[in-house]
């Protein structure tokens, strides 16, 4: 091997360092496999789109759910307890209850909403004004919003239990409970999305592997001849790895574009939904960071599958 190198070096015009030579060889192969991509543009485009959709679907869900989790965490600061008084309670009695609650040391703040006020707000918000007007009795009870002193779930639960025992209290709702449910829902969706993402990543590996296998099959002759004239596995692997890198980059870019479009379409309706929770939350579109992760992830998957396939195919194709 050393004598072989030495003689061939001596016969060349300019001696090249190993690093320079590798760099030149890689550049040549990168370029030639890029050119080769455009020999069958339609087939390649379809493969890239398939891969892009498989990447964009979990990608969009992950970005949305991560932001939804941010929203749920932001709402977490609300420890409010809503106390609904029974309908029989008079306005004076209700106010008395509110004042009494204000005295308690475990309560930070009390907001009293009289039955009439609650009714007005509701008829405005619901647009059912006329129908509600025609009712003789007000169906909406007076409500006291209680902000507890302590923030722990246990303390809030205990307070709610005590409030429930009070005379003229009809129902006690802890805001935290539905928040917890919301958070649990977001959390479960996130997990489901990761399961989905794993399955689709596996799909990407398989599609990519199959593409590589077909490429190598169509270049079987070439591989055989290169093996016979002394091409190493590394040399034979190179064009296929570069074609995988290019496919990964193309599929990744397409995936990022699809995700951007999907998020743009979803943005208005999600912002509306958030504002119904009194939140100014906004769905943000793809950042440069998301682009990079998508491109690298896509490239990584393509390379991994190419490495696995190409290695096993090279072992099979023997002169």
């Amino acid at each position: 091997m050393t004598t072989d190198k030495a003689t061939s070096q001596a016969q060349r015009s300019r001696p090249e360092t190993l690093g320079k030579r590798l760099l030149r060889e890689h550049a040549e192969v990168a370029l030639s496999s890029w050119i080769r991509l455009w020999r069958t543009p339609i087939t390649n485009l379809l493969t890239w789109l398939t891969l892009a959709i498989a990447l964009a679907l979990p990608g969009t869900l992950i970005i949305m759910l991560n932001q939804a989790q941010g929203l749920a965490n932001q709402l977490h600061t609300s420890n409010q307890i809503s106390v609904f008084l029974s309908l029989q309670t008079s306005s004076e009695q209700a106010q008395a209850v509110a004042q009494q609650l204000q005295q308690r040391t475990d309560i930070k703040q009390v907001t009293f909403i009289a039955a009439d006020t609650a009714m007005q707000e509701f008829s405005l918000a619901s647009g059912l004004g006329d129908i509600l007007q025609s009712l003789t009795d007000n169906p909406i009870p007076a409500t006291i919003l209680v902000e507890p002193q302590l923030k722990s779930a246990d303390a809030i639960g205990l307070l709610a239990e005590q409030l429930r025992q009070q005379a003229s209290v009809d129902q006690v709702l802890i805001d935290q409970l539905w928040l917890q449910r919301l958070q649990a829902m977001v959390h479960t969706s996130q997990r489901a999305t990761w399961v989905l993402a794993t399955m689709l990543a596996l799909g990407v590996l398989l599609v990519m592997g199959n593409t590589m296998r077909m490429q190598m099959e169509s270049r079987r002759e070439e591989i055989l001849v290169i093996k016979l004239v002394g091409g190493t596995d590394a040399y034979l692997r190179r064009p296929f790895l570069y074609s995988a890198i290019w496919a990964g980059l193309m599929a990744g870019s397409l995936a990022a574009i699809i995700m951007t479009l999907a998020l743009t379409l979803l943005q208005p309706s999600l912002t509306d939904l958030a504002s119904s929770f009194n939140s100014t939350w906004q769905l943000h579109n793809l950042t440069i960071w998301h682009w990079l992760v998508t491109l690298f992830g896509s490239c990584g998957l393509a390379c991994l599958s190419a490495l696995l396939t190409v290695q096993s195919q090279l072992r099979q194709i023997q002169p």
């Binding site: 061939s8 090249e16 001849v225 004239v229 002394g230």
Partner: peptide, 12 residues
């Protein structure tokens, strides 16, 4: 081909 596999540049 036999030259490319042993790393010859295009000129040589």
């Amino acid at each position: 081909l036999p030259l490319k596999v042993s790393g010859y540049n295009n000129l040589d």
